[in-house]
């Protein structure tokens, strides 16, 4: 029984990280119809930003402060990925709006370039990030069942990001502009919205969320230049499965992929589990070709 609970917990944990990554992808695909293959590298940016914050703390600040570095590194990873995303949007992505296939190729190239850049700066081997001591250990529910604090922390972090995203999209003027552009770009523009500004803001925020995901990944294992590529395919499947245009679709998609991944791999083997997940997705898309939330958006018609 405990094993099942643990697997369920792992499934939710995997889902939460996927959700954080897929949120950014879903908004850029839904709003600008751009497939951003470099999204995985923004995860890497966030992860290395965390690593750098740690190095700075170790080098320049008293060791008693070290445990607090992680809170700061969440902000640092968001800021780093946000700024790189903004730059990327200004110099490249904005020329690719509405051209999904071109954007796929171009951002793939950007991703490779960013990976190589990281290799040149930090070296090819993976680096480890030391977790703060307050995240060591776990919450013992019963004798055999321990939920690691790190995983619980990530869950909380994702819940917080999701809440922030929800408030931003549905409760602020900027979010209202974003939804208007997503639903009807031309009309939004005719009513005075600067679609350029909304687009770059949306892209940068999506990138920033990927950065936070990278920061969370440093708690789970060592990080390297190609860390993003492990997650990008699954994240795209979340977007396809969930549909675009509403947050809830992405949440359901992430839960679907994360849980089936974990459970199938537990019941069968790692590779057979993956095959089964793909089969499930293919079957689901036969039933609902537009994903879980089929919001008719003009950009996709």
């Amino acid at each position: 029984m405990e094993v099942v609970w643990l697997q369920l917990f792992n499934g939710i944990s995997v889902s939460s990280i996927l959700l954080l990554i897929a949120l950014g992808l879903a908004v850029t695909f839904g709003q600008m119809n751009v497939i951003n293959m470099a999204h995985g590298e923004l995860i890497m940016v966030g992860a290395y930003a965390t690593y750098l914050t740690q190095q700075l703390f170790q080098a320049y600040l008293p060791s008693s402060w070290f445990d607090q570095y992680f809170l700061l590194s969440i902000l640092a990873s968001f800021a780093a990925a946000f700024l790189i995303g903004l730059l990327l949007e200004k110099v490249l992505i904005r020329f690719l709006y509405g051209r999904p296939l071109d954007s796929l190729l171009a951002t793939w190239g950007v991703g490779l370039a960013l990976q190589q850049l990281a290799r040149s700066i930090f070296g090819a081997p993976n680096v480890g990030v030391k977790s703060p001591s307050w995240l060591e250990g776990g919450l013992a529910v019963t004798d055999g069942l321990v939920f690691p604090y790190k995983r619980l922390f990530i869950l909380g972090l994702v819940a917080l990001c999701l809440l922030a995203m929800f408030l931003y999209i549905y409760r602020t003027a900027a979010g209202r502009r974003m939804r208007a552009v997503m639903q009807n770009r031309d009309m939004a523009a005719c009513l005075g919205i600067s679609t350029r500004r909304v687009d770059s803001m949306t892209f940068a925020i999506g990138s920033g969320l990927a950065g936070i995901a990278g920061c969370a990944l440093t708690l789970i294992g060592p990080i390297g230049p190609s860390i993003g590529t492990y997650y990008i395919v699954d994240a795209f499947m979340v977007v396809v499965l969930g549909g675009v245009g509403k947050l809830i679709g992405t949440v359901v998609g992430a839960l679907g992929i994360g849980m089936t991944n974990t459970l199938f791999e537990f019941w069968t083997t790692a590779s057979l589990g993956k095959v089964l997940v793909f089969l499930c997705i293919v079957a689901f898309l036969q039933w609902k070709p537009k994903g879980f939330v089929a919001l008719r958006t003009r950009s996709l018609d």
Partner: peptide
């Protein structure tokens, strides 16, 4: 904007 409320539609204006 079909998914926005009437109030939000006017505010976009």
């Amino acid at each position: 904007f079909g998914q926005l409320t009437v109030r939000e539609n006017i505010l976009i204006g």
